Simulated assay, not measured.
Amino acid sequence: MDIRTYFPRHPLLRQYISYYYFLVVDDPDFNVTYYSFPNTTTPLNIHKNIETKIEPYATSIAESKEQNNVMLVQGMRKQPLLANLKGRLDKITIHFKPLGLNQFISKPFADIAPLDSQLFTDWCHAPGYNHFIADFYGTCDLERRVGILEAFLLSIYKPMIIDPLLINAVNALADTSNEQNIQQIAQELGISTKTLSRFFTKHLGITAIGFKNIARFRHSLQVNQQGKTLTDIGYESNFCDQAYFINVYKQIAGASPGAFFKSISKFADDQLVFKLLDQGTV
């Protein structure tokens, strides 16, 4: 798959967005099936002229003769998502940092993305949305598209007042270099573990421990690039023992760590990790 990666230009957007990637396919026979894996980022996809079928942990996208624009957003999922892409496609995916999308929506995150994958309509009635889509898909220049997208995002930016305690908790749980359990973090913030759990469920759509395991999982992918043993990878990613390391991987990745690392492919400057099942005309 020819995936092109771009990083936010505007300093405000860099606070909330990790990166964008484009997938533009002009081959009607294109057909690829793959698994994508849980991440601490929130992917939001904007597609041109597609039909889609969404099932639990399985989403298919196919070229459509209907002239439309479809947006999909993925919640903070705990299991791999099976994806199938067919035909000519033209999409951008925005990877929002934790709490990032919250700054650009009109409802709580838990209301916007309660499922692993769903249609996203929150922007459809925003002032300038139709003009944005027309301009965005009116050019094939990806650099220009990034500029058009960022102008739209800045126009709908509504900074959400989030309790600083939640932000501190998110940062603490994502920091694998300073291992702390949920109870320690809640105690340091002066709140109960129940309050901490409510924060995460409302604003991130996942429990605190679920988020922490995903952060450990994503860190282990980075450590694996350094050619270390499975024992070292588990230890450096703060999995308390090998049995727990394996159990979390079987849930999040659907395989043991050793089998998983042998099966994955990386795209978008190693930002994306997929397990390709049917490469078709990739």
Rank of each mutant, 00 (worst) to 15 (best):
M1S: 11
R4A: 14
F7A: 07
F7I: 12
H10K: 12
P11G: 11
L23I: 13
V25R: 06
V25P: 00
D27I: 04
V32N: 02
T33F: 01
Y35Q: 08
S36V: 10
F37T: 01
H47V: 08
K48A: 09
K48V: 01
E51Q: 12
T52E: 07
K53Q: 11
Y57P: 01
E63L: 06
K65G: 14
K65Y: 01
E66D: 13
N68C: 11
N68T: 11
M71L: 15
K78P: 00
L81N: 11
L81A: 09
L82P: 02
N84T: 14
L85D: 03
L85Y: 05
R88Q: 10
D90Q: 14
I92K: 02
P98T: 13
G100Y: 01
L101Q: 04
N102P: 00
N102V: 14
I105V: 15
S106N: 13
F109H: 06
A110N: 08
A113V: 03
A113L: 04
A113S: 07
D116H: 10
F120Y: 10
H125R: 15
G128N: 09
Y129I: 11
G138A: 07
C140I: 14
L142E: 11
R144E: 13
F152R: 03
L154R: 10
S155E: 02
Y157F: 12
I161G: 07
A169V: 05
V170W: 00
D175F: 08
S177N: 14
Q183Y: 08
I185L: 06
A186V: 05
E188H: 10
G190Q: 07
T195Y: 00
R198W: 01
R198P: 00
H203S: 10
I206K: 01
T207R: 07
A208R: 03
I209E: 12
K212Y: 05
F217Y: 08
L221Y: 01
Q222M: 14
Q222G: 09
N224C: 09
Q225E: 13
K228I: 06
K228P: 00
L230K: 06
L230A: 10
L230E: 03
N238Q: 14
A243W: 03
F245L: 09
V248L: 03
A255P: 00
S263C: 07
K266P: 02
F267A: 08
A268H: 04
D269K: 15
D269T: 07
V273Q: 05
K275Q: 13
L276S: 10
L276W: 02
L277R: 09
D278A: 15
Q279P: 02
V282H: 08
